[in-house]
């Protein structure tokens, strides 16, 4: 086995290399009870309050794309990280690293989008930071947002998934791969004109309705980098249950499938920015789907599989043609700078 003595793009992919980097470098040095849980948001008990705290940096290229821009992503990504933990997102910070010479108009457009998204999500941007670096030392603009939210006591176990049990249904709120393939199609070195857009959206209102519809939600996670395959693998990894996915129940848009076929991507591994995987007790599954369908972001919601007592620690797919195979985490880089 070769030791990587430099950072490779794959270390930022959200897949196996990222996991190794987090374990071997970050956890090793920052280790503490909260961090080591490696949930999307840290859950902190401060006096009588349970707070969720999360941070994310956005380096997407191109910064403007069909369905959104880097600013929309910076709000939605952080809001979603809080919401999937079961928290009500409240406040955000916004830090900007800007390349010298970046057009002011673009920065204004990005911040206007952020304002709109923040209003829609019902959160407030309360602090920020600006740094400008020499031309060529950063690419256009990078944004970091951190967010805090309040976690109701009844949702405390959602982030860890400790209540997941065999028989629970696995639900997604719509089609997979839209964001990743939109970015891919728009990268200037590929001349693909397809009618798709990023699914980038704040999911907190929909998630709030899901949690109002059922108190038997055992796990939620937004499927971003690494796609749903990575989330599904994480759900079962080292657990005494497995899961099975029905491939033909997983919504994939025609255009997304087309680009995936053309470029050799598997949509299960392609990034999303407005998709949440929900695990819920079987009896409440339909309720959750119905709650999702009341929202624009959940119109195509579907039950895609279930938790099983068989093949512990592994995710399986019944393929659309009746075959069977495993699901694994993304290895190596799929697309750098996707979010």
């Amino acid at each position: 086995m070769r030791k990587n003595d430099r950072i490779l793009l794959g270390h930022g992919s959200g897949g196996q290399l990222s996991h190794e980097l987090i374990k071997n470098v970050f956890i090793k040095n920052f280790s503490n009870t909260e961090l080591n849980k490696q949930t999307d948001s840290a859950i902190l008990k401060i006096e009588d309050l349970n707070l969720c705290f999360t941070t994310d940096s956005y380096v997407v290229d191109p910064i403007f794309f069909s369905g959104g821009n880097i600013g929309k992503l910076a709000i939605a990504g952080t809001v979603n990280d809080l919401a999937v933990a079961g928290a009500k997102p409240l406040y955000l910070s916004a830090g900007f690293i800007i390349e010298e010479g970046f057009p002011m108009d673009d920065l204004v457009k990005i911040t206007e989008t952020m304002k709109e998204e923040a209003q829609k999500a019902g959160i407030t941007i309360v602090t920020g930071d600006t740094k400008v670096v020499d031309r060529g030392k950063a690419d256009k603009v990078f944004i970091n947002t951190s967010g805090i939210g309040i976690l109701p006591k009844k949702n405390k176990e959602i982030a860890s998934g400790s209540k997941i049990k065999p028989g629970d249904k696995i639900i997604i709120n719509g089609s997979i791969g839209d964001h990743g393939m939109t970015i891919m199609a728009e990268r200037n070195d590929l001349n693909i004109s397809a009618k798709i857009g990023s699914d980038c959206a704040c999911l907190n209102h929909m998630i709030n309705d899901i949690l109002n519809a059922s108190d038997k939600v055992s796990f939620m996670r937004d499927a971003t980098r690494g796609g749903i395959a990575t989330v599904l693998t994480e759900i079962v990894s080292d657990k005494d249950f497995g899961l099975i996915i029905e491939e033909d129940q997983v919504p994939v848009k025609e255009a997304v499938r087309g680009i995936c076929e053309l470029l050799g991507f598997d949509p299960f591994y392609v990034a999303n920015e407005g998709k949440v995987i929900v695990v819920v007790a079987s009896e409440d599954a339909e309720k959750v789907v119905a709650a999702m369908k009341n929202h624009k972001e959940g119109k195509e919601a579907a039950i895609i599989g279930e938790i099983t007592s068989e093949h512990k620690g592994k995710g399986w797919i019944n393929t659309g043609i009746g075959g069977k195979r495993i699901i694994d985490m993304l290895a190596g880089e799929q697309l750098p700078r996707i979010c």
Partner: peptide, 28 residues
């Protein structure tokens, strides 16, 4: 040997037998 830390070329290439088995058939 795994796709993120491959030893042989068969684990690297998307068309490699080891990569395909690792990704889709590791525990069959």
């Amino acid at each position: 040997c795994s796709p993120s830390d491959p030893v042989g070329a068969c684990m690297v290439s998307n068309e490699g037998a080891c990569h395909a088995y690792y990704k889709y058939n590791r525990n069959l």
